[in-house]
Design a protein around this nucleic acid. Structure first.
Lengths: 345, 345
DNA sequence: CTGTTAGCGCTTTCAT
DNA sequence: ATGAAAGCGCTAACAG
């Protein structure tokens, strides 16, 4: 009663003068037990401070945990700092509450990415987008536990959900770049540990994150079709999906010669960072600088950002239900370009 | 290898021609095992698809889970929607990552609040503020697992962390109400399931949530000292800590006779809702309407809101470390009134 | 409606 | 450096 869940079914059984099984029934299927017995058992349990079956023993016996694991990249605070991750998790949470499952947040550490997975007490994994060939993916697939991934990579053995980033990339690039002289892309990271860099017309396949790669490919494709030499398009690759880093990067570029006059940003977060930089410098948006975002977050709506809208919340829900086998697969998520006040067209 | 974590230590042991104990050592204390043996064991494990000890069995044997449970009110999406909860969780997460612990999000359902607690596979509980006498509190205390609560109630057996809401309430009420003719409080909920209501000088002890109660008590105390009849002070009690609900409530009051000219709001979230309502109506802030918030969130800073700043992140961290026994207790969290542009003084 | 048996997979303890 | 024994607390399967 005082420290730890020390009281066992056996002790309660002894006190109540019944067998352990009856105690088990009393807690799990009370209707199976005679009213008088039930009362006696519960009284003994209360007296001894027994609050219910030990979860570890029950899980061992039943072979299930009643918990779903969400695999996030370190640091775990990302889950709470990042808008997109936040919405995804909210969707996962909504499905888990319905299914009476707990959520375990798993942080992939650098020193041993695999152990977090293999030692997780969960019935399924949901993985937040990872770079291709990341060891975590392999660990999840080999765990033998049902699993799904948002944003790829798309590998056998993992349920996959992701919007058509390439197609949307073309559309949003057009919205951003139409009529521009010095267009640029503000890119999400290419890999897990990478400094921010300024590239010129990089090969999209250099990006290890599928989401980044596909969005970049879409941008390139539109440029090629529109006759804009891809080599001349600058791509500022950030180290993180961070408002502050984006603001700083764009501020530097706006202060330098040949400042950009169009920015296709791969997330609302960094688009808003760019917007902040422009605003601080008095650069009129969209007249002198058009900016687009991605995701359709609350702050983007308030800021009047032209952006690609998708529901990470719904994708989180759908992936969760599919991984649990409640629905059969996940449809490709819908998206739309929402034109607001940060683009010229 | 295909479905579930079916391979056991025993099978690997047989294949590697060693005892189960050696396999256990190979995974838990590899340095204890001869190099050649280790290699053989790992080869067998890889061959059979054994990825490591079954977490349930290990937890049962060791009596610990390596996980900390965070108890949140239903719906669980609150954790991701609410700014304050979000910061608290980020702080918890930072401490858990350091300690190599997982985080389990537990949603308290209405139908059986206790079972979620008793069946949680965790080594400690962190509870997000609950109403006094809520059954969840009791369940947590009786679980025998170390536990802490943010925002109260302050009960024996639970570590407690909360800023001095009453003292700050006085200070912020002064900032909001100074020189006002028709001051009002925009209040967080009084209880878990309650419609929104408009009260006149309510007794603070009617509020079941300690945070609400103490902030209201602070407001009342300042009014009494300043000679403002508390009975004349309107208190709009919201059903949820929601921007939208706050905006709607304040919009209605601004459109009615005797609109408020000062609002002390108990969170940034609802203060910003009030600000939106004022802004939509063209009510000049702070000239015709002063507004204060609480928490010192990002959006509040951007909006220039006068507010009480505290770090829920640090409080989350501190409470986690204390509950784990790594630090000894939690100091009372610091706070400051930050005057910005939404108040007259 | 209640009880008996058996064993989930692992690791602590104590040898060797 | 490796192994044997024992049991963590529970519940599925099967009586009665």
């Amino acid at each position: 009663m005082t420290s730890g869940n020390r009281v066992t079914i056996a002790q309660v059984a002894r006190d109540a003068q019944v067998s352990p099984m009856t105690v088990s029934y009393a807690f799990n299927q009370p209707e199976r037990v005679a009213a008088a017995t039930l009362e006696r058992v519960l009284a003994s349990a209360a007296k001894l401070g027994y609050t219910g079956p030990n979860p570890a023993a029950r899980s061992l016996r039943q072979g299930r945990f009643g918990t779903i694991g969400v695999v996030l990249t370190e640091p775990l605070t990302y889950a709470f700092d990042d808008l997109a991750a936040n919405r995804f998790l909210a969707g996962v949470a909504s499905a888990c509450v319905e299914q009476r499952l707990g959520i375990s947040l798993l942080s992939v550490a650098d020193d041993n990415p695999v152990q977090v997975i293999t030692s997780a007490a969960v019935d399924a994994f949901l993985v937040w987008t990872q770079p291709d060939d990341d060891p975590v993916i392999d660990a999840v697939v080999h765990s033998g536990v049902p699993a799904g991934i948002l944003g790829g990579p798309h590998v056998p053995g993992l349920l996959y959900v992701s919007m058509d980033d390439r197609a949307a990339g073309k559309v949003v690039t057009e919205a951003a770049f139409a009529g521009a002289q010095r267009p640029m892309v503000l890119s999400l990271p290419f890999g897990r540990h990478q400094e921010s860099v300024l590239l010129h017309g990089p090969d999209p396949t250099d990006a290890g994150y599928p989401v980044t790669r596909h969005r970049l490919a879409g941008a390139r494709e539109w440029c090629l079709e529109a006759g804009i030499p891809w080599d001349l398009v600058r791509v500022a690759v950030l180290a993180r999906n961070s408002h502050a880093e984006a603001a700083q990067t764009i501020a530097a570029l706006l202060d330098a010669p040949e400042p950009p006059d169009a920015i296709m940003a791969m997330s609302d977060e960094i688009a808003l960072g760019a917007l902040t930089a422009a605003w601080e410098r008095g650069v009129p948006v969209p007249e002198a600088l058009s900016i687009t975002g991605w995701d359709g977050s609350e702050p983007a709506t308030r800021a009047g950002l032209t952006t690609i809208e998708q529901s990470l919340y719904e994708q989180g829900r759908a992936l969760t239900l599919a991984v649990l086998g409640i629905t059969d697969g996940v449809p490709e998520p819908p998206w739309t370009l929402v034109r607001r006040t940060t683009t010229r067209t």
